[in-house]
């Protein structure tokens, strides 16, 4: 082993008159966490590929072969939007529900909690990182929709659609983080599945809500998935969603944000010595 040279570089801050007692600015810390979370994610290419492949394969299996849907510009666009939203919800819930729960079991995690930063920057970075990888997943989906179905959007609608889907992913990332901080990895997996599929179905991501009976439609309109879907359909096709979609989505976002922060505060890493 090469010798550890001793130089004054690690001199204690006692040499400084009064140590600075402010953490670094919030956005500096958030950017720092975003950069390293992104690096950690792309260093495991399979995880990135999974995100890219899943929505594209679903498109080929479930939408492209059904010509009544694929050949109708409105239906095809709605189908692409619904699948895109499902992919983003599922990626957010799995990546954050399971990802956070797994991170918490690593010994590096308690170390991170001892650094001079609150939970905010790390959470913001996770949300943004989720958005970036959701975009990677959406790109092939959009290309397939364009080449193999009659789905059609104007460039303005496309941009509005991407913006909407990223905004809609926020509550699901927050819900994922709440689950990840509250549960162990083994418990997080089934909980995410139990939450995701009913939400996706009730939200009309698999079947159009026009086919729902009245009572189911009423429940559907209270779900974050339905609110997100209708906002997305409105952005990409111009078809008006229900009036309460935005308030419902904002309400769920606030609730999930509170749950995520509470779960983080309660969490003290691994619960054994």
């Amino acid at each position: 082993m090469s010798p550890v040279t001793t130089s004054p570089a690690t001199a204690a801050a006692s040499a400084h008159a009064e140590p600075e007692r402010r953490t670094r600015p919030f956005w500096v810390l958030a950017w720092l966490h975003l950069r390293y979370q992104f690096l950690e994610t792309v260093r495991i290419p399979v995880a990135v590929l999974g995100n890219l492949l899943f929505p594209s394969l679903s498109m080929f299996f479930f939408v492209v072969p059904q010509r009544t849907v694929a050949d109708d510009p409105l239906f095809a666009t709605v189908a692409v939007a619904g699948l895109g939203l499902f992919a983003v919800c599922s990626a957010s819930l799995f990546t954050y529900g399971l990802g956070v729960a797994e991170d918490r079991q690593l010994p590096f995690y308690p170390f991170l909690r001892s650094l001079p930063t609150g939970p905010g920057p790390q959470m913001v970075a996770r949300v943004l990182n989720g958005g970036i990888f959701s975009l990677f997943g959406l790109l092939p989906l959009i290309v397939i929709g364009w080449l193999f179905t009659a789905a059609t959007v104007t460039p303005g609608q496309l941009l509005a659609g991407i913006g909407t889907i990223l905004a809609v992913s926020v509550p699901f990332v927050l819900l994922g983080m709440a689950i990840g901080h509250a549960l162990s990895a083994k418990a997080a997996l089934p909980v995410v599945q139990v939450i995701l599929f009913p939400l996706a179905f009730a939200g009309g991501l698999f079947l159009p809500p026009q086919m729902f009976p009245g009572w189911l439609d009423a429940i559907s309109q209270a779900t974050p998935t339905r609110a997100g879907r209708d906002l997305l359909v409105q952005a990409t096709t111009g078809a008006e969603g229900y009036a309460l979609a935005l308030p419902v989505l904002v309400g769920w976002t606030v609730l999930f944000a509170v749950l995520a922060v509470l779960a983080y505060r309660r969490d003290e890493g691994r619960r054994f010595r």
């Binding site: 007692r21 010994p107 590096f108 170390f111 001892s114 001079p116």
Partner: peptide, 25 residues
Amino acid sequence: DPRARTTLGLTPQETGLPATLRVRE
């Protein structure tokens, strides 16, 4: 309080370093 920790240093457990990040990172 995170501000209290600006003057604190701590060793992570060696097994807990993020395996895919480089030393410099």
